[in-house]
């Protein structure tokens, strides 16, 4: 694969914790690779499996869903639903043969700019050796 391959990542960030945590990374002028494009959702619980399939279908090399820490959901329990639902999605993706590293979930609070930065750095690092995702891509 080409040396300059840059994985494309879509990150679904909940408004209250992870998007705020990512804002904090910005305010603190931390640095992470620009491969990730964020989509702010209200709650990780609103992330439908359709979003994840759709992102892979449209050529995403990795998808991240990040919400409030379990127990700290702004909407009381949305992230618990997310955790259950997305674990099934993870299994399904594994079943269809997608590399497990391509789909990640994380819990990042509004105070965890450092953690968010690290997650993105690690994610990009893990995706690079895998090369472009073609398994679920419509027109590879």
């Amino acid at each position: 694969m080409a040396e300059d391959y840059e994985p494309r990542i879509v990150a679904f960030l909940c408004k209250w914790c992870s998007s705020a945590g990512s804002d904090l990374a910005g305010v603190s002028r931390m640095e992470y690779p620009p491969n990730v494009v964020p989509i702010q959702v209200m709650c990780s619980g609103s992330v439908s499996p359709l979003y994840i399939f759709s992102a892979f279908n449209k050529g995403a090399d990795g998808v991240l869903v990040s919400g409030c820490h379990p127990g700290d959901c702004h909407y009381i329990k949305g992230n618990y639903y997310a955790r259950r639902r997305l674990n099934l999605v993870k299994k399904l993706l594994e079943y269809v043969g997608l590399e497990t590293q391509r789909f990640q979930m994380s819990w990042v609070s509004a105070a965890e700019g450092t953690k968010f930065t690290q997650i993105i750095k690690d994610f990009v690092k893990e995706l690079k050796p895998l090369g472009p995702q073609t398994k679920l891509r419509r027109n590879p």
């Binding site: 904090l24 002028r29 620009p34 494009v37």
Partner: peptide
Amino acid sequence: ANIREQCSWVHKDKPKATQK
């Protein structure tokens, strides 16, 4: 569109940040 906290402040490579 949040292009400061989630883009310009966390990246240094101008062409890539512009693309993002």
